[in-house]
Amino acid sequence: QEIVSPEDYIKHPLQNRWALWFFKNDKSKTWQANLRLISKFDTVEDFWALYNHIQLSSNLMSGCDYCLFKDGIEPMWEDERNKRGGRWLITLSKQQRRADLDRFWLETLLCLVGEAFDDHSDDVCGAVVNVRAKGDKISIWTTDFENKDAIVHIGQVYKDRLGVPPKVIIGYQSHTDTATKSGSTTKNKFVV
């Protein structure tokens, strides 16, 4: 008789249930109508089942986004958990789509579902990848731009996990500043 360990049949639960969203830029529709929920998951195995099934970011058409957010948080500034928040923003050069985009996005997903920021993970709302012709962007959204300790910890761990060289600075910007900016750049509230 073969003894089967629970490891072999019980899925590994995640701390949070997550929702993956897809945004496709169709100018004939409203912004909200272009945003679709793909699926939710709350185990490691179901995360991989979903990830293995969908297109890599680098294969998406320009103007598309993936958003991974905690269940109950919508991937928009207006959500109660986002409206006082902000994001750590990684901007990629055009050349980095081939070299880094998919690797950085997967690393971002692993940071979220694995709760890589310890107790500061509670400040995380989600993450977004924007595929754009002028340069792709990846960001981790947190809930309150005044929570400096949490934000700085998240930024340091995230930068390390992505393998961003120490001399390269990444910035955290509040959604309010991003929404009301006048030029093409938003001022950083924090940098690491």
Partner: peptide
């Protein structure tokens, strides 16, 4: 309470298991 934390190696190892 306790937080369920998985490091990247564990998560990546789970990808290839059936």
């Amino acid at each position: 309470g306790t937080r369920i934390i998985y490091d990247r190696k564990f998560l990546l190892d789970c990808r290839s298991s059936p």
